[in-house]
Structure formats: structure tokens, C-alpha cells
Amino acid sequence: MIETAFTPIASLAGGALIGLAAVLLMLFQGRIAGISGIVSRLLPPEADGETAGRLAFVAGLVLAPLVAYAAGSAWPVPQIAATIPVLVVAGLLVGFGSVWGNGCTSGHGICGLSRLSLRSLVAVATFMASAIATVFVVRYLL
């Protein structure tokens, strides 16, 4: 495994920024900042006049590393341990599961929990449990 440092302050600040983005999307557009919901409604684009806005949001996410770099941060290279075949399976599961379950870490985890939604609480408990179990199997049993 790749060791990572405990970063409570940066993580709290980053989490607050994510929360701020969720609030801004509600304040300006009246919408939940669920990444899986926003992205999946582009596949194919839903005919509700929101496609350009969704694409702009996704573009902001994709270009965020450039802005972080321009602001003086290191180029944020993700450390990926999984092999290509595992990444294919994992990607399919993440994509399918998040849309089938109506949300991912953002829509259920941040937006849903902060609205005290029972569905989101059940979803978060479920995906945390299955993710923790999966990591245990991969790291200690296989």
C-alpha cells in the first residue's frame, strides 16, 4: 500500500469548499450537487435545457487541477495502485452503482446527509460498509 499523511486541516478546509459548492449550486440553480446525477444526465443529454450548465460544471471539475497549480499548489497527481483490469471493473461498478442508487459520495454523502434524508443515510451506510469490506478483502484476504 501507498502511505499517506493524516491531513485534518486541509481535509476539513477541502470539505468546506465542497460544501460551499453544493450550497452555491442550490442558491443559484436550485439543484443538488450530485456528481453522478449531473454526469449521468449527459449520457445521453436529457432534454431539459440544462445540458450546457451540466457540461460547464463538469468542465470546472476537470480543469480544477490547472487552477490549483496556477494558484501555487503542486500538480495534484493521483496515486493509483489498481491494475488496468481492476480499474475497468471498478469504474463500471462505480458508474452503474451510483446511478442505480441515485447518488454517490457527493449527492448522498454531502447533500443528502446535510438535508437529513433517510434515503441518503441508508445509501451512505451501505456504500461505506461495502467499500470498507472490499478494501479488507483486497488487502488482507487476497
Binding site: 493509483i80 446511478v99 442508487g101 459520495t105 451512505v124 456504500f127 461495502s130 483486497v138
Partner: peptide, 26 residues
């Protein structure tokens, strides 16, 4: 359906460490 989807999502998240937002950022 909610529980099935969330469980599948969690397995994928645990396999790779990516959820949808970070996958786009990367």
C-alpha cells in the same frame, strides 16, 4: 434499488479509490 446501487458503488470505490467527482478531477 437504492441499497443494491449503493452496495455496488461501494465495491467499485473500494477497489480503485475513485468516486465520480475525483475521477473527473483526475
Amino acid at each position: 434499488r437504492l441499497v443494491t446501487g449503493a452496495a455496488l458503488f461501494g465495491i467499485g470505490w473500494g477497489l480503485a479509490g475513485f468516486c465520480p467527482g475525483p475521477a473527473l478531477v483526475a
